[in-house]
Design a protein around this nucleic acid. Sequence first.
DNA 1: CACCAGGGTACCT
DNA 2: AGGTACCATGGT
Length: 304
Amino acid sequence: MHRSALQTVLPARDYDLAATLTSGQAFRWEFREGCWDGVIDGQWVRLQRRARGIAAQTALPQTGWGWLAQYLQTDLDLDPVLLSFPADEPMQASVAACRGLRLLRQDPWECLASFLLSSSKQIVQIRQIIGSLCARFGTPLTTPPGHAPAYSFPAAERLAGASEAELRACKMGFRAPNLLATARQVAGRQLDLHGLYHCPVEEARRRLTQLPGVGPKIANCVLLFAYGFQQAFPVDVWVMKALRQLYFPQRRPSPACLRHFVQTHFGANAGYAQQYLFHYMRTRGRRGREDRSEQRSTPALPAL
DNA sequence: CACCAGGGTACCT
DNA sequence: AGGTACCATGGT
């Protein structure tokens, strides 16, 4: 017999909770009163880093915490992953700067819909759009007494029944028709998101990119952040900047060349490596501008 | 106030 | 294959 509980501590080491929750893979976590408030599987959750692990609090009694360990991937040993990265200077600098950064394992629909809304948007804006979408179309969740209201991420069926104008009211602009059409395909079972768990990565990517507004970048984000395909390597403007500055400072490689490079150079955990590069570049820019000579320090150029 | 943002697409040469 | 305008909106 399990006793139900409202809180626990998941054992975890080598886990930078703040970096993980703010590194542009999930968009709904908010820092309040020294804790991280969010929603997982339609349930309000509050997290806090502790010495031995990650403390979690819910508003409803739990009989188990496997769903949370799965989302946070606390059982993953980070050391082999970091050791599998290439031993070049950019990767070592990224690991030194972001050690403890993790990949989450998110719900496929929320992840797909979120990154559909991410195109050509800053992370702060993506968060605002998604927050508005959840408040308008999600269902209110139980929260602790006196706490701000929280909402579930709206199901595909719910968005499929909305109008494009209603979606545009959430300030998503030209992304609205893509989200609507995708929601209808998912709700109508023309695409079985759960079935992608059993597909080879190429097949899963092929099916995702058939959705309107889903190209290689967004598909790779979903493959990596929801399905756990750790070789999936999303290339956005930041990662592109990292690749060009750190690996190809003198020439301009073609897209095909770049694709081949990222698939062969970063190994079996290329997607993980990509997240370190992404977070490293992003946190490098905002705080303190070191002089240009630092980022021009010669990396080990890949032979090609 | 230009410029750009975890892109994709249609259309051009 | 490789370039470009455009999509809507707001942060920096």
